[in-house]
Computed example of a mutant assay.
Amino acid sequence: MTRTDAAGPDGAVRAWRGLADTSVLLDGFHAIKHALRFDARVPVALTGDRAGALALADELAPDVRAALDALLVEVPEERLRALVPRLHPTAMAALAVRPSRAANLEALARMPRPAPVVVLDDPRNLGNAGAVIRLAAGFGATGVVTTGTLDPWHPTVVRGGAGLHFATAVERMEVTELPPGPVFALDAEGVDIRGLKLPDDAVLAFGSERSGLSAALRERADHLVSLPMRPQVSSYNLATSVGMALFHWSAGRPPGLEA
């Protein structure tokens, strides 16, 4: 956690405007809470109701209450709405420093690793990508990689991830640059995942919501695997598919063993 030396609301708003174009927007209490828990650098945090925000922390996240108390600056809500396109109902927002790409790539490349990397092959839906990052963080995955044009640090993705981008390594890469490890690509024609044990160093790849796996990813795959699905049901939501695969991986680990 960090904080600017901004004095009062005017200084905090000036600091926000100076940092906004290069920082990660944390929208709402839960995003800020998760970012602080996973050691994000947060130079400025604003709220329209400081007492209410701290009361919420007392109730839901006492572990970050002191950090919030040190960070939060109260500004009139109309000024806050001018800075944040769609103010969260908790009337809180913060700016965080994006982790360095070099550090994320190092974490993704490190072997052996204790948990899989999730790859989203040319995803199109920002909300789905955020939900996947939230899932991956919850399971302790090593990271989430996207291929294609979607920016996994887009504000809408970060909003969907509830600040949990800071709990795992999130980067965009080319298929040819994917982290090491056997690639298990999810495909309807693959082998039923229930008959497989997914290794900790697996790279779990999921095709786009519209077109499935790209030719490049399919060629890169070491194994094609499928999720159980009732006949005449065409597909699952992307985040659902990722959750099912990560649960299958985690089911082979002793209870209480964290990645």
Rank of each mutant, 00 (worst) to 15 (best):
I193T: 14
D200S: 15
D200R: 13
L227F: 07
L246T: 09
P254W: 08
V145K: 12
P155H: 00
G212K: 12
L238K: 04
V145G: 13
A102M: 05
L25Y: 05
G130C: 02
L227E: 11
H154P: 09
A115M: 04
G130M: 07
A93N: 09
F139S: 00
G52D: 15
L80G: 06
P182V: 12
V84L: 13
V157C: 06
N237P: 03
T156G: 00
V203Q: 14
E59T: 14
W153D: 05
A35M: 08
A137I: 05
H165P: 03
A167E: 02
G195D: 14
S241P: 04
V132P: 10
L213V: 15
L196N: 06
A57C: 03
L105F: 02
W16S: 00
V132E: 06
T156W: 02
R79C: 00
I133K: 03
R218V: 12
R113Q: 11
L238E: 06
A162G: 08
A107W: 04
S23R: 10
R50F: 07
G161N: 02
R17Q: 02
S241R: 05
V203K: 13
R41D: 15
L71V: 13
G130K: 02
A162Y: 00
V44F: 04
A53Q: 07
L46T: 10
L227K: 11
T2Q: 04
I32Y: 05
G207L: 11
G52K: 06
M111D: 13
H248V: 13
L105Y: 04
D10T: 15
R3P: 00
N125Q: 14
G11E: 00
V44G: 05
H154T: 07
A6R: 02
L26T: 06
A137T: 10
G130A: 01
R253I: 08
V158D: 00
L178V: 15
G8V: 11
A55H: 05
G207H: 15
F38G: 07
H248Y: 06
G190S: 13
A109E: 12
A20K: 01
R14V: 02
A67Q: 12
G252R: 06
L83W: 07
S214D: 04
G48N: 06
R253C: 02
G148Q: 12
P231L: 04
M229Q: 14
V157I: 06
L227H: 09
P199V: 11
S214Q: 12
P179R: 10
D5P: 01
